[in-house]
Design a binder for these strands. Structure first.
Length: 476
RNA sequence: GCGGCUAUAGUUCAGUGGCAGAACGCCGCUCUGUGGCAGCGGAUGUCGUGGGUUCGAAACCCACUAGCCGCCCCA
């Protein structure tokens, strides 16, 4: 299907890592998860996102859900093109405002827009987003909420290892400020718009704010001469924005004021922002966007409930991480299993599966080959997916003593069945410490890893000795 | 939705009108209880789909589909 993709097992580990990191960060900032339907009544989106926006006017997947009885009306349904509307709908429907508490909600899920696909632009795409919303008395309108959300995003991107992100920030003012500014823009555009490109001529008519976003080289001079939104902010909007900036400065979050930053959804008021990146996305360089929506709840028939939120384009985040890894010359190796069990003949097949069952129940990750494989093939297959191969022939099945080769050490060892999981767990411990040491850079972590390596080596040798003694006694 | 580029083996790609190719990967053998190296051998396939031009099309033309680049928009 156009604009859709399958994420195969070589991709999903990165997706899961990104989502786990986001969940961890959200939890530290007091956010709880909300899951809303992927389709909603069409009017939810036309009322919130805006009838005249591109999203609503040409990009939604909409269909008529037929009436099931004469008494029922057909209903127009739409696959959600974004999630803020649904979250606010749920906020109203479940009367979350009545709790008096500030609501901090996050979501991770697919969104749908019928656009022409491109790198970083898909018809089904994923967003990781969050909303802070509540009655005024809960502090939902405080500039600290704006700053906290922005600081959280900066921390999240840093934790994910996204480099060179840039926060672009603007205030589009209150609904009233915007009306006045729109008026001023139209007036300023009237005498000069015929000098501009056709796209901008059209925008000057339909949505003057979008002229500010134009990339047309020739029109830049005119655009620079247009009125600035900052000059049309009311005193309250101005004070609010200044308080946001002050808090960001205090947190050390770097931002770039962009008076031309205009977002395409009608519900945005006051603080609006975008995080852009330079790696991996081409022209779709906006990795996340968001802003304040102080009037949205009321637009949807709810109580006054100011809020602020954002949506991260998860697909774009992942493209960026992949592009960065490629630029660094890193290849992401698939995680290897603890053991590959190779029956040396079909006679050992059943025993191999039984052994795999035992080891898996003890928590090891295990793959089983087949007795029809030649030994060489078993080794090749094992080395690709696992760290150790367990050779299971007649002798091993008879004695219960395993023959193991651990690829990284290149050494073969014997082990009583009951000891195997313990030894492998010692190895995994050692590897965990190594990974930690690589992350922290602390010499002490390296030292711990060294000690764990000794423990692993000793455990392996002990197991080997025990196994050999057991075999000796058995011969006598 | 507009303009452009692209589509050949599992992957990356070569092939500009005359037998469908390379590298990597895969499978087999040398080598039936010890792999990785090496040697030898093998299969790779609707040349995106459909139509047209031609004695002959992977190649030229048209349409469609999909991806990518730019626009538009946004995440």
């Amino acid at each position: 299907m156009r604009g859709t993709r399958d994420l195969l097992p070589d991709q999903t580990p990165l997706w899961n890592k990104v989502e786990a990191t986001a969940r961890g960060v959200f939890a530290r900032y007091g956010f709880g998860e909300i899951r809303t339907p992927v389709f909603e009544d069409t009017s939810l989106f036309s009322r919130s996102v805006g009838e005249e926006t591109d999203i609503v006017s040409k990009e939604m997947f909409t269909w008529e859900d037929r009436a099931r009885a004469a008494s029922e009306k057909a209903q127009s349904l739409t696959l959600r093109p974004e999630s803020t509307a649904g979250v606010v709908r749920a906020y109203i429907e479940h009367k979350l405002g009545e709790t008096g508490q500030l609501q901090k909600l996050y979501y991770i899920g697919p969104q749908f827009r019928r656009e022409r696909p491109q790198r970083g632009r898909y018809r089904q795409f994923w967003q990781i987003g969050a909303e802070v919303i509540g009655p005024q008395s809960s502090g939902a309108e405080s500039p600290l909420r704006d700053a906290e959300v922005l600081e959280m995003l900066a921390s999240l991107l840093d934790e994910l290892g996204i480099r060179d992100w840039k926060l672009e920030l603007n205030s589009v003012g209150s609904a009233e400020d915007r009306v006045r500014y729109n008026q001023a823009l139209r007036e300023a555009l009237e005498p000069v718009k015929h000098l501009m490109c056709v796209d901008n001529q059209r925008r000057a008519e339909t949505n003057p704010l979008r002229v500010l976003d134009s990339k047309d080289e020739a029109d830049q001079e005119i655009i620079n001469g247009l009125p600035k939104i900052a000059d049309y902010l009311g005193a309250e909007s101005k004070a609010h924005f200044e308080a946001v900036l002050e808090a960001l400065d205090a947190c050390g979050v770097k931002y770039h004021l962009n008076p031309r930053l205009v977002r395409g959804l009608d519900y945005y008021t006051r603080t609006t922002f975008e995080f852009t990146v330079t790696t991996g996305l081409g022209t779709q360089n906006a990795m996340l966007g968001g802003g304040r929506y102080d009037g949205l709840s009321e637009m949807l028939g709810g109580p006054r409930a100011p809020g602020i939120g954002f949506a991260i384009g998860e697909d774009r985040l992942i493209l960026t991480l992949q592009a960065q890894a490629e630029a660094d010359g890193l290849s992401v190796a698939a995680a290897k299993l603890d053991a590959y069990i190779a029956p040396l003949g079909v006679a050992q097949n059943a025993a191999a599966l039984a052994l795999a069952k035992e080891l898996r129940r003890e928590g090891l990750t295990v793959e089983v080959g087949d007795g029809s494989f030649k030994l060489r093939k078993s080794f090749d297959a094992a080395d690709k997916v696992a760290r150790s191969i367990v050779l299971l022939g007649e002798d091993e099945v008879a004695s219960g003593v395993l023959t193991v080769k651990t690829f990284a050490i290149g050494e073969q060892w014997k082990c009583l069945k009951k000891d195997f999981a313990k030894v492998i767990k010692a190895e995994n411990w050692m590897r965990e410490y190594r990974a930690t040491a690589q992350k922290t850079g602390f010499a002490s972590d390296d030292l711990l890893a060294d000690r764990r390596e000794e423990v692993f080596n000793e455990a392996r040798k002990d197991a080997n000795n025990d196994a050999e003694q057991f075999l000796l006694r058995r011969q006598i």
